[in-house]
Design a protein around this nucleic acid. Structure first.
Lengths: 223, 223
DNA sequence: GGCTGAAACTGAGCGCACTCAGTTTTTGCG
DNA sequence: CGCAAAAACTGAGTGCGCTCAGTTTCAGCC
């Protein structure tokens, strides 16, 4: 019956609220004492639930971490996409978005390290969520490529989506290297490296399409 | 022969031999029962040592896994580099090498999954070893690029090493996606995807260098 | 309200990676 | 040899993530 769907039954509401409490407790403890040093028992206690209950909401401690991070990352990406530089190049836009994520991770490298390590290997419902998030990001950046392709600024024969996916891979690789290092580079330096890598991938888009007209409209002088 | 080589002090020899026993035991158990289902106590027992002794040789169970895998991967890469296709394109060579690694990982995806997950985040001595291994691989493949650049087949202005590093990143990203998936693609399909990604990165090398334009009249070469 | 089955919750307990105080083995030296 | 210091080794112990048999809470129905 539809009435049941309308009113949020007591059970559902309790569950949702309990989930929030767990997330809040975990967030506070993780950032105060670090991921490894926080025990699930402490989280449960702070959330006011039994030690076992936590695992009815999250399959594992790692799973909990991923769930927390994903929400925050969503916000970061959304904000970055909303503030794209107006007059910048495609490369600038890519660096703007991924740079924002790097800055975010810089706030708490130990957490970020644990997160990245788990993110790509989670299973269950969270795995789908993670990949949806990545797909969304890829799609948005692919759209930026296609926009320029449509205006004739870039080689329209290149598969925009695949290029965007490659850039995500480059970002992750850089991030892993950065987070894994004993002595971490300043994020400015890190972003500069990322820019280099992106430039190398995106340069392909500037190539004259194999068959298409080569800027015939532009009065280019030949010797 | 030197005096130092002659007398392998009893201590050193024992240590080395014990290390071998641990590795052999771990390898056998991991491949029989899987990584997660094997306990460090079982490994120690099979190696004929005390439970705590294992941790004098390897900092953690993960560390042990990484050490085992790295040795095997070295061999795989070495063989692949020695059997590069003679008449193939640069893309063919990249796919040949990384394809060999994929095939290797296909033999035991659960182990590979655990390995890849830990590899990029190990610390201590093994971390240095892992990155030396990656650097070596990058250098070898960069050399293949430079070889063609020197012959004028590819844009010599592109930084070969960075391109090779980008390709490694693409390989790792694909591998993570593949190993993390619930239903794993056939490796042939996986390799085809990797080829696409590589092609997108390497295409940049075919661009006519800014100043030297000799490729214009040359018919496009395919495979 | 009273009853009933199901859903949610609990915490004592389990298995395992890893530690460390105590023991054994090895080495260098007189 | 004997001896002392150092190095290597050991396994009982510890802490933590996670489980599950038992308990409590809730929703729907009379």
């Amino acid at each position: 019956m539809s009435a049941a769907a309308l009113d949020t039954p007591r059970r559902e509401r309790n569950k949702q609220e309990k989930r929030e409490r767990i997330v809040a407790a975990a967030r506070a403890l993780f950032s105060r004492k670090g991921f490894a040093a926080t025990t699930t028992a402490q989280i449960a206690e702070r959330a006011g639930i039994g030690a076992g209950t936590l695992f009815l909401y999250f399959a594992s401690k790692d799973d909990l971490l991923v769930a927390i991070f994903r929400e925050q990352m969503d916000a970061v990406v959304q904000r970055a996409l909303a503030t794209l530089p107006k007059r910048g190049s495609l490369l600038d836009e890519f660096v703007h978005v991924y740079g924002a994520m790097i800055v975010f991770h810089e706030r708490d490298p130990e957490l970020a390290r644990a997160f990245v390590k788990e993110m790509l290997f989670v299973s269950g419902r969270n795995r789908a969520a993670v990949f949806e998030y990545i797909d969304g990001l890829d799609a948005q950046l692919a759209a930026r490529i296609e926009f320029r392709q449509a205006r004739g600024e870039l080689d329209a024969s290149a598969p925009a989506r695949l290029v965007a996916e490659n850039c995500f891979a480059l970002y992750i690789a850089r991030l892993q290297k950065w987070l894994g290092a004993d002595e971490r580079l300043a994020s400015a330096e890190h972003i500069a490296r990322l820019r280099e890598a992106f430039a190398l991938q995106l340069r392909m888009l500037e190539a004259t399409p194999p068959r298409a007209a080569q800027r015939a409209s532009q009065p280019k002088r030949r010797r």
